[in-house]
Computed example of a mutant assay.
Amino acid sequence: MKRSLITSAFAVAVALALAGCASAGATSATTAADAGAGSVAETTASVTLTDGWAKAAETGMTAVFGSLENAGSEDLVVIAVETDAAESAELHEMVGDGSGTMSMREKDGGFPIAAGDQLQLEPGGNHIMLLGLTAPLLAGDEVALTLAFDDGSTLEVTVPVKDYEGANESYDGGEHGAQ
């Protein structure tokens, strides 16, 4: 009898603990979705990054390139990027000043990717800029990135770091040193 009472009390305690965990998990998932942070359930399968890579750099800033393809039926906009490899990450475009000089600047509104289309991230064009590297990025290393889209979905990717002599564009505004 005593053993059965202890077993019943233990079963009730486990059930209550599991119910408490389920409620807390649901609340934090809702909070993350409401904040637009994205969760595993929101990850989009319609966008992929192919041939992605980051330019090797020891300090300062560097860039990430590749091809983003939207295989879905809805247009999407890449609105933000996060990584632990840098203090911040920005979406950049190249613009001319009218005299033939090109410089990079943050892309207002993000990068639109039409349904069934691709967006090329390349030296001298659109790219992801990593500002304030937290550690050197050397050839052979890998960089993890999370891309956020306007529909609340995210895409987690890892790209290799490669040596590259190009992509030494100037930054419009001059507050960041080019790598």
Rank of each mutant, 00 (worst) to 15 (best):
V12P: 05
K107A: 12
E169V: 02
M104V: 14
D150V: 07
K162D: 10
T30M: 10
L16A: 13
K2C: 00
S103G: 10
S103E: 10
A26V: 13
K107H: 06
G36P: 03
A9F: 12
E169H: 06
L138D: 06
S103Y: 03
R105M: 14
D141G: 03
G116L: 09
T50L: 03
G132N: 08
H92D: 13
A32I: 11
A63N: 14
E165Y: 04
S39H: 01
V14N: 02
V161P: 09
A144T: 15
E74N: 06
E58Q: 08
P160L: 08
E42W: 04
A11P: 04
L16D: 08
H127T: 03
A57P: 06
K107V: 14
L91N: 07
S73L: 14
E142P: 00
E42G: 15
M94F: 05
G140F: 02
T31S: 04
A86P: 03
S46V: 15
Q118S: 15
D172I: 10
G140C: 05
K162P: 09
N126R: 05
D117C: 01
T154I: 15
V77S: 08
T59F: 09
A35L: 15
A17F: 05
L49S: 02
V12Y: 06
I79L: 10
C21W: 10
R105Y: 08
T158N: 01
A11S: 12
G124I: 12
V64F: 04
M104Q: 02
R105S: 13
S73A: 11
L131F: 07
A24S: 07
S46C: 09
E87R: 12
A86H: 07
M102A: 01
A148T: 15
V161W: 00
F111A: 03
S88P: 00
A114G: 07
Q118M: 11
S8T: 02
L16M: 13
A56C: 13
D117E: 12
M104W: 12
G174H: 08
V78E: 03
S153H: 03
F65G: 00
V157T: 09
A19V: 07
A37F: 15
G152S: 00
V157S: 01
M94G: 05
V159K: 02
T43L: 00
I6M: 00
D51G: 13
T48C: 04
V78D: 02
L131S: 09
A17W: 10
V64S: 01
A86D: 03
D151R: 00
M102Q: 09
S170E: 15
A26K: 05
A33T: 07
G98F: 06
S73D: 15
R3C: 09
S67R: 12
H92Y: 04
D172E: 11
S23W: 07
